[in-house]
Design a protein around this nucleic acid. Sequence first.
DNA 1: GTTTGTGAAACGATTCACAGCT
DNA 2: AGCTGTGAATCGTTTCACAAAC
Lengths: 206, 206
Amino acid sequence: MRRIAESTVRRLSLYLSFLEEFETQGTDTVSSEALALRGRTTSAQVRKDLSHFGSFGKRGLGYGVPQLAERLRSILGLDRRYRMVVIGAGKLGSALVQHRGFSERWFDVVAIFDNDPAKIGRALDGITILDVGRLEEYLGQTPADIGVIVTPADPAQSVADLLVATKVRAILNFAPAQLSVPHDVALRNVNLSLELEALAFTLADY
Amino acid sequence: MRRIAESTVRRLSLYLSFLEEFETQGTDTVSSEALALRGRTTSAQVRKDLSHFGSFGKRGLGYGVPQLAERLRSILGLDRRYRMVVIGAGKLGSALVQHRGFSERWFDVVAIFDNDPAKIGRALDGITILDVGRLEEYLGQTPADIGVIVTPADPAQSVADLLVATKVRAILNFAPAQLSVPHDVALRNVNLSLELEALAFTLADY
DNA sequence: GTTTGTGAAACGATTCACAGCT
DNA sequence: AGCTGTGAATCGTTTCACAAAC
């Protein structure tokens, strides 16, 4: 199907979370206007976002809450579970593994790797930390869908190469490095310094 | 000055980090093409980004590395230090405080707050965790520039309100909540579930 | 009467291409 | 000759506005 904008996908995820709120409140129908209000956007935006995937509403009435939620889960690929490996068991890596909302719902952390002998063999959230030297061997036997890189910048590219070689198809990168991956591997970067610098820019208001 | 796109600011931050690399390598001049190559963009993009703020290059030659770095620091507001308060001393909050690249360079964590009596009074990276009930009092006496919200979703809005009331002008929100803040307060959201769901979408390739 | 779904219009960002300096 | 700075062209996203469905 035709390419869907990044921004659209983010909004769809938000709509799903709003629908799940509405669902627990027992609301059974929402209008695009109601969803828009909840997400600080416009009803036209909501309708356009959904229209890329089909017609899920009833004119004059709105959308069935559980039905639309189900559709969005299907669209977002959240009708299955994903196997994640985390590389880097430092402070941030450990926090992510233990963070609810990360290793829950549709995403399972199946393995954690580090290169620090002091960490290898310890457990994090019930998962034993393995030697990163065994990453290739491990993923060769039990493939994963998503790799999460939480190493320093320096080894990040070689970790990414390793992940790509072992058929990981999506990478979430927390290392402050510009990773190079094949075009068929999805890559998302979370760069904390960049977020702060963007805030500094608006504070400075050049 | 006229509004600068989000994406432009992000690239400027990246250019700065590349320039600092070039600087340590002793390179004294770069072309827009060289910067573009390093950042996986185009030379026209680099020049357009910079052109919003002035003309910093020499035709036929390129840009002076230290000079352009200095300009970018000034543009991004990185010619001063920023005082940050972190609200939430859970796993993620603690990891952020101790994360290099977060509390370094131009950003200082000056205080950490939590509502858990077991955490209050303990120190994190040399900073004593304070009772969030004293946040208003604290910020009234010693204002901060940036508030970092690392609480669960539920209390996030009331924490944001408190920060806004005490003249914090920028908020970095890690809680999975749609915060409402006045238009003159800068808000950036980092939502880990959303990042994973965006990856799931590309894996599913609806 | 209400609200969806969608072409058309408006807006914004990126890329092109070249005149103007060095 | 080489590279910047920038108007013009292109491309993509958001908003508008209304016909169609209920």
